[in-house]
């Protein structure tokens, strides 16, 4: 088998790189002091930056990538009056499902078990012909 065979079989089907838009979003987020959380076009968590680790209670290296249902359950997202918040009401969910920016205040419980009130702004990464590549969510703790 030549190197070329290995390349396509091993890369195109197994280890295909993320879209450039997500790669650039991660590079951008890595340079910010504002907490940033990035999901792909299916809502799967693919990255959060170091400032977000403090709010979410665990490093991304420890947490790893997670499907949407998984991170929703782990972070116990709820409204400020304590009602569980479905994905479609979360700013990230609005950006994912309706492909528009959204903002809201809500409450989460981090992986360290601490409950925090945070404000969230999310926007969709839309490319050529409005193809969705993912969602960038920025958040900050309420004083």
């Amino acid at each position: 088998m030549s190197r070329g065979d290995v390349g396509f079989a091993g890369t195109m089907e197994a280890a295909r790189s993320k879209h450039l838009v997500l790669i650039l979003a991660r590079e951008f987020a890595s340079q910010l002091s504002l907490p940033v959380f990035i999901t792909d076009d299916q809502g799967k968590l693919v990255f959060y930056n170091e400032p977000a680790e403090e709010t979410l209670g665990r490093t991304f290296t420890e947490a790893g990538e997670m499907k949407a249902a998984e991170w929703q359950a782990i972070f116990s997202v709820e409204t400020l009056d304590g009602r569980p918040m479905p994905l479609e009401e979360m700013p990230g969910g609005v950006a994912l499902l309706e492909r528009r920016p959204a903002h809201r205040e809500l409450r989460i419980t981090g992986l360290d078990g601490v409950r925090r009130e945070i404000a969230i702004t999310a926007f969709p990464l839309l490319g050529h012909e409005r193809e969705l590549f993912g969602i960038v969510t920025m958040f900050w703790e309420q004083a």
Binding site: S2, R3, G4, G10, T11, S17, E27
Partner: peptide, 24 residues
């Protein structure tokens, strides 16, 4: 490598990886 150290990333986060992986 703009803003990142290439060899610290998993390959799926490297721009152009799929294009170049394993080529002659």
């Amino acid at each position: 490598a703009l803003g990142v150290a290439l060899e610290s990333l998993s390959p799926d986060w490297v721009s152009g990886y799929t294009v170049a992986a394993g080529v002659d």
